[in-house]
């Protein structure tokens, strides 16, 4: 089963440039996780000042450019996990949060085609 983890952003992550060692450490962790097979994809997301919200209602579209002022709207990175159980997804996520020195991640289970087979 697959899960999507969304790391919540804050003032700090909005304009974050990691140290060379943190950047390298994360690169090695990601490479190892992908090789092991439990990490499908992951990326850091750039500052919300470069983001936009696109809304369509009643056929009418509006675009609102960032930065997003509500901290709870910020997302710093995403990861797609391929794991055997939700418990494993939680363990991987906890390990990652420990690696980055703490933070908050919303973990969603993703739909798979098999979820729609009857």
């Amino acid at each position: 089963m697959r899960f999507m983890g969304l790391l919540k952003g804050n003032q700090h992550t909005e304009n974050f440039t990691p140290n060379p060692e943190d950047f390298a450490r994360m690169g090695e962790y990601v490479a190892q996780a992908m090789k092991a097979g439990w990490l499908v994809a992951t990326d850091g997301l750039q500052s919300s000042s470069k983001a936009s919200t696109i809304r369509v209602a009643d056929g009418k579209g509006t675009i609102t450019d960032g930065p997003f002022t509500e901290t709870k709207e910020l997302i710093a990175s995403y990861a797609i996990l391929q794991v055997g159980s939700k418990q494993e997804a939680i363990e991987r996520t906890t390990e990652f949060l420990n690696l980055i020195g703490g933070g908050e991640i919303d973990l969603y289970q993703m739909y798979d085609p098999s979820d729609f087979e009857s």
């Binding site: 440039t17 140290n19 060379p20 060692e21 950047f23 390298a24």
Partner: peptide, 19 residues
Amino acid sequence: ERRGSLTWAIAGKVFAWER
């Protein structure tokens, strides 16, 4: 130069950096 500090890299990997 990254964040005002010097780095030296080989094939995109930083091997030495001012810290």
